[in-house]
């Protein structure tokens, strides 16, 4: 992915500059048995063993407080990448580090389940593309938030109630509906409950998978406002997956483009959109003009 000079530069600028919150290198996820031919794969499907590589050789850094956009065609592996980062799914290859966590160097993808749980519960929040994966539909909205707080080590019932109500207000949900099942909520409300749940433990990192997809325009706008507000006021770093380039342009400082399981381009958002380099990105951007 990156030559020696590139690595040296990345290292030097990290010293001069800031430390990434999250560093990922060579991450891959394979569905299938795998074989030696998988090592120099062209597309997503290995012709020898038939395995599908949902993502392949993904490397990037995410800095504190920034919104990093992730775009790419359907099936290019965006959701899979997020699920791997959230330890929902076991990555097949790769290294992921959080430099501020216990001195940094350990590969968290290979850490114990207990350690992964700790990181997820204390440092991460995720909004799933499908709310059925992110919410327990037969547990009340408040209960969903409480679950995340309990996982993060908040056991005091009064504090949990207060925090849940506070988050409920923050995402502009009507307070009387705190005890209702998310199953009964509209899509936009479910996304907002997911955001409330993701924010419960005040994580420095949010993984957002298509937070606005499928919502009608006015609800979309409110969810986007919420995301902007969270970033501005809480300084939370976000990895934001969206197929809506307008959303990406509005929210992301930097943007990465995935195509057939690989990162084919990354850069400043305005540059990726206005001066795209990779043929796939050019197609993506032009088709939306």
């Amino acid at each position: 992915m990156m030559n020696q000079a590139g690595r040296a530069i990345a290292a030097v600028s990290a010293i001069n500059e800031e430390q990434p919150l999250l560093a990922v290198s060579g991450l891959g996820k394979r569905y299938g048995p795998g074989c030696p031919a998988c090592l120099d794969l062209q597309g997503q499907r290995c012709p020898q063993c038939g395995s599908l590589w949902a993502c392949y050789d993904i490397s990037f850094d995410l800095y504190p407080g920034e919104i990093l956009g992730l775009v790419g065609e359907s099936g290019s592996g965006k959701s899979t990448l997020l699920r791997c980062l959230y330890f929902e799914e076991e990555a097949t290859t790769g290294i992921m580090t959080i430099p501020s966590y216990q001195g940094g160097p350990a590969n968290l993808l290979a850490a114990s389940a207990q350690q992964q749980r700790y990181i997820r519960n204390h440092m991460m929040g995720m909004v799933f593309q499908n709310p059925w994966l992110g919410l327990r539909m037969h547990v009340s909205g408040g209960g969903n938030i409480a679950e995340k707080l309990l996982a993060a080590g908040v056991y005091h019932v009064g504090r949990i109630r207060t925090r849940a109500a506070e988050l409920w207000r923050q995402v502009e949900m009507p307070l009387p509906r705190l005890d209702e099942y998310p199953q009964n909520f509209s899509g936009g409300m479910q996304q907002r409950v997911q955001i409330a749940k993701a924010l419960a433990n005040k994580p420095p990192l949010l993984l957002l998978d298509e937070v606005t997809t499928g919502l009608d325009l006015s609800v979309q706008a409110r969810v986007l406002d919420l995301v902007r507000q969270i970033q501005r006021e809480l300084g939370v770093a976000m990895l934001l997956v969206s197929h809506d380039l307008a959303v990406i342009r509005m929210l992301a400082d930097r943007t990465m483009v995935m195509h057939q399981g690989r990162l084919v381009e990354q850069g400043l958002t305005d540059q990726v959109l206005e001066d795209p380099e990779h043929p796939y990105t050019q197609l993506l951007v032009r088709s939306l003009l």
Binding site: N3, G6, S13, N16, G267
Partner: peptide, 23 residues
Amino acid sequence: MGRGGCYKDRQAGSHCYEGMGIP
């Protein structure tokens, strides 16, 4: 892709070191 590093390092080599905050 360089990760935030100099994209030119793919084509050119060392001339971009000058801009990296190194003297």
